[in-house]
Design a protein around this nucleic acid. Structure first.
Lengths: 154, 154
DNA sequence: TTAGCTATCTATAAATC
DNA sequence: TGATTTATAGATAGCTA
């Protein structure tokens, strides 16, 4: 439909591809709207351009969420399994990170030290010493700054 | 497009509606396929007839699941059920906990102290002192135990 | 680049089988 | 009903500004 027939294969010229995308995207979204009105159908359309921009349509009086729920019931395909797994995996990962930090924190507070090797204890002591050193530096600097401020205000 | 122009409103004659649905459904699915090939777009289409029958399309090399995941990331809209919401909520919660601990750890190591109030610095110092005290107690006990062991082995 | 403009191609409404 | 056939409305490819 247009000045010439085109073959259905990837348009190599990127400008043309973008223009065609924009036109056809509008076409599909319009058709989707029309069929949903004309035929009382529930329609959900999600389109990503190759640049990753999102366009979507969903029939009035429903929602993508509802349509997809129906899709799952109807097709038996589970859409969320993958997502589910990845979420669970992320939770596990973060929880592990959490546990590690929890333990490190407790150690730095001098708790739960019984299971540690002497070498580990030494490392913790070094960390604490280091922390104290840094902190004291900071406190000294603060104090100096305060003194200077007071001095300047005289 | 056809022998006569039609108004875009629900087709009352149920036979016509069904026929039109069938034709237009094919049209949309074809267009979806075409744009995905021509323009390298990711497309997902789900259509339910008014009778509840399901038709769908998804671009090759991806899956509805992946497209919808991307949709959510991109639009910020949440499509899935309560379980996913609760998983997402848990991730948020754990991440916050994580951040808090991260900060506390850095503080105990004497890092990122600039934004802190003197009072907070003092509290950190107390925590560090406390940790050192506990740790040293532990080290002393360990040493004693070791000595006792050696003593007993004599 | 983005927005119109047609000539042409496609989709499809109505008719026919 | 369902498939096939037109005549026409609608979509759009290639231009142009």
């Amino acid at each position: 439909m247009g000045r010439g027939k085109i073959e259905i294969k990837r348009i190599e010229n990127s400008t043309n591809r973008q223009v065609t995308f924009s036109k056809r995207r509008n076409g599909i979204l319009k058709k989707a709207r029309e069929i949903s009105v004309l035929c009382d159908a529930e329609v959900g359309v999600v389109i990503f351009s190759s640049a990753g921009k999102l366009y979507d349509f969903c029939s009035p009086k429903t929602s993508l969420s509802k349509i997809l729920e129906k899709y799952q019931t109807n097709s038996g395909k589970i859409l969320w399994d993958e997502k589910h797994k990845s979420l669970s995996a992320e939770i596990d990962r973060i929880k592990k990170e959490n546990d590690t930090m929890q333990i490190e924190l407790r150690h730095l507070k001098g708790e739960d030290l019984n299971s540690l090797q002497p070498k580990e204890l030494i490392m913790i002591e070094e960390a604490l010493d280091n922390g104290l050193t840094n902190l004291n530096e900071k406190l000294v600097i603060n104090l100096l700054n305060q003194l200077i401020s007071m001095w300047l205000m005289l």
